Amino acid sequence: MTTTTQPLLAVRDLQVAYGGIQAVKGLNMELYEGELVSLIGANGAGKTTTLKAICGLLQPRSGDILYQGRSLKGQGAWNLPAQGLVMVPEGRGIFTRMTIDENLRMGTYLRSDDEIEADIERIYTRFPRLKERMKQLAGTLSGG
């Protein structure tokens, strides 16, 4: 179910290459607020490359990415979190020498609203094992 007529994120004819190897070829997609979307494909299909391009970690060869109706062209990855667009790392892409709680709080670094504590508590409610281990170094987690 969509809540708006304008997509929250729109990818238009995205093409991304590593040198002469084209990893993403003409991708088009629209994601609307409230949707739960999965990007699936075989190894080497361009899933991670697509996400890195959306988040400004890779420059597309061509095409456009619009977030909340605005083009992200020319913006670096460092500009996007303040706009609400981030990539959640996979695997062990965490701050290993910081606690679980410190890692969660790093995700709020650019926020100044009054909902931070409620959001962190919501995460701990959803993942009670994290709350039990909130003072544990994140690098000592099993990764599972």
Rank of each mutant, 00 (worst) to 15 (best):
K25G: 12
G34L: 07
E90L: 10
G56N: 08
M98A: 10
L51S: 08
V24D: 02
G26E: 02
L85E: 00
Y18A: 14
A53Y: 04
L31A: 11
L130E: 03
E117N: 14
L80S: 11
G74P: 08
M29W: 01
K25R: 15
G107V: 08
L72C: 07
I65N: 04
Q22H: 12
A53F: 03
T140N: 13
T125M: 05
L141M: 15
R126N: 07
L14K: 02
I120C: 05
R92I: 10
T125A: 15
M106S: 04
L57E: 11
Q68R: 15
G74Y: 06
E35P: 12
K25C: 13
M1A: 14
E121D: 05
E115F: 10
D119R: 02
R61V: 15
K52L: 09
Q6T: 15
L58A: 13
K131H: 12
E132F: 07
R111Y: 11
V24M: 01
T50I: 12
G139E: 01
S71N: 15
V88E: 01
M98W: 05
E90Q: 14
L14Q: 07
Q68C: 12
E121N: 10
V11H: 00
E117G: 13
V11W: 00
I116N: 03
K25E: 13
M87D: 02
P60D: 01
E132G: 08
L36G: 03
Q83T: 09
M134K: 15
N103Y: 07
I65E: 00
L137A: 12
T3C: 10
I65P: 01
E35M: 15
E132L: 07
R92K: 11
Q136K: 06
T140K: 10
E90V: 13
R122C: 06
L58G: 03
P89I: 07
P60T: 09
D119M: 07
P7E: 00
L36S: 06
A118T: 12
M98P: 09
R12E: 08
S62N: 04
Y109H: 10
R97L: 14
L58S: 06
N28H: 14
L8V: 13
V37K: 00
G144S: 09
G46R: 10
E33I: 02
A138W: 00
M1G: 14
K25I: 13
E30V: 08
V11S: 03
V86C: 15
G34Y: 01
N28G: 13
D114L: 05
L141Y: 04
T49V: 14
P7K: 02
A17E: 12
Q6S: 13
G26P: 15
Q68I: 06
L130F: 08
P89D: 04
L36H: 03
D101E: 13
N28P: 14
R70M: 12
A82W: 03
V11K: 00
G91A: 14
L39A: 13
S38F: 05
